[in-house]
């Protein structure tokens, strides 16, 4: 902690970048995401088109087709790489939108309190308690299948959790002295929220974004798997849809669904790692716990050593 002293003189961005590089988990996670990002953006023009008919349907992996071919005789390797594009794009866009809406609604509820909070909290809690998948299915089946539909459905069913987290964080900030000082000095509420409070919630917003993206990617793949996306596009979800439609299990052609599922898992795992990393960097309790761990010899502790007591939780 001692050499972190002048860390606060750096800009927020450099602080974050250096924080991520130093933290092992966040670093590994970011590398995986970067890898898939590069793969999705730059590689598709150089490989086989994922929609061409190439060879006998359902031929197993070979030197020609690394991941074999699917039930339509298309290259599974190309489909896996090209599928990343739309899936990741929609996943991360939904993540951003969810955080923005969550911050707007949750932030307003937490900052203003009173009647406004009562109404907004009720709205948040209703959306929280409603089961997501059936609602998504109804919405997606009434709307025409398109990326915009997917995005809208994901955002509508996903915003409530973030709103709730941001609301409770906002409520603790609302009672801090610096906010009271800003109110007394006559700053407008909007300015206080955007300029004074939001920058202090950056780590929460970042981890909310990551959590929302994990949710959006998983839910999107699930919806497309049900055939509620546009099945003519190549995405990770439609890959799985076609695999199950072409009876991948009955024909024992595991290569049609294993690569795609693995990529999805890698992405969510990498995002989870980044979230662990953010938590470790920004959560004082975990920092002090790690410092203590280094000082005390391993396997000697049998009970609680966390030096920071928390009275609020």
């Amino acid at each position: 902690m001692i050499n972190n002293k002048n860390i606060y003189k750096k800009s927020i961005l450099t602080r974050w970048v250096s924080g991520i590089i130093v933290n092992q988990k966040a670093f590994i996670g970011s590398c995986i995401i970067l890898f898939f990002g590069v793969l999705a953006i730059f590689v598709p023009p150089f490989i086989q088109s994922p929609t061409d008919f190439l060879s006998t349907p359902l031929s197993p992996p070979s030197s020609d087709y690394f991941f074999g071919t699917n039930g339509q005789g298309q290259d599974v390797f190309a489909q896996t790489i090209c599928g990343a594009r739309q899936t990741l794009f929609i996943g991360f866009s939904a993540g951003i939108l969810v955080v923005i809406i969550g911050a707007l609604i949750g932030g307003t509820a937490g900052y203003y309190g009173g009647r406004i909070d009562d109404v907004l909290s009720l709205l948040i809690n209703i959306f929280l308690v409603m089961p997501g998948l059936p609602l998504m299915v109804i919405l997606a089946s009434w709307l025409p299948p398109s990326p915009a539909t997917l995005l809208g459905v994901l955002v509508l069913t996903g915003w409530a959790w973030n709103a709730r987290v941001i609301r409770s964080q906002m409520m603790t900030f609302r009672n801090r002295d610096f906010v009271s000082a800003a109110v007394i000095s006559g700053e407008s509420n909007i300015r206080i929220i955007v300029i004074e409070i939001m920058p202090r919630m950056l780590s929460l917003l970042a981890s909310s974004f990551i959590g929302a993206s994990i949710y959006a990617i998983g839910a999107q793949v699930g919806l497309e798997f049900l055939g509620l996306g546009d099945v003519s596009t190549v995405t990770w979800g439609t890959n799985l849809y076609w695999a199950s439609n072409d009876l991948a299990l009955l024909t024992e052609s595991w290569w049609t669904f294993v690569p795609t599922g693995f990529c999805i898992a890698m992405i969510s795992f990498a995002l989870t790692l980044i979230n662990f990393g953010i938590d470790e960097v920004s959560n004082p309790r975990l920092i002090s716990e790690r410092l203590w761990r280094n000082k005390i010899p391993k396997n000697k502790i049998t009970h609680g050593i966390t030096p920071v007591s928390n009275s609020n939780e």
Partner: peptide, 21 residues
């Protein structure tokens, strides 16, 4: 956390494939 990262239904497919088929 790694296993939690897999989509529910995909893991179900793999389990069904391995232990069922």
């Amino acid at each position: 956390a790694f296993f939690g990262a897999f989509p529910y239904f995909w893991l179900a497919m793999v389990f069904l494939y391995l232990f069922g088929f």
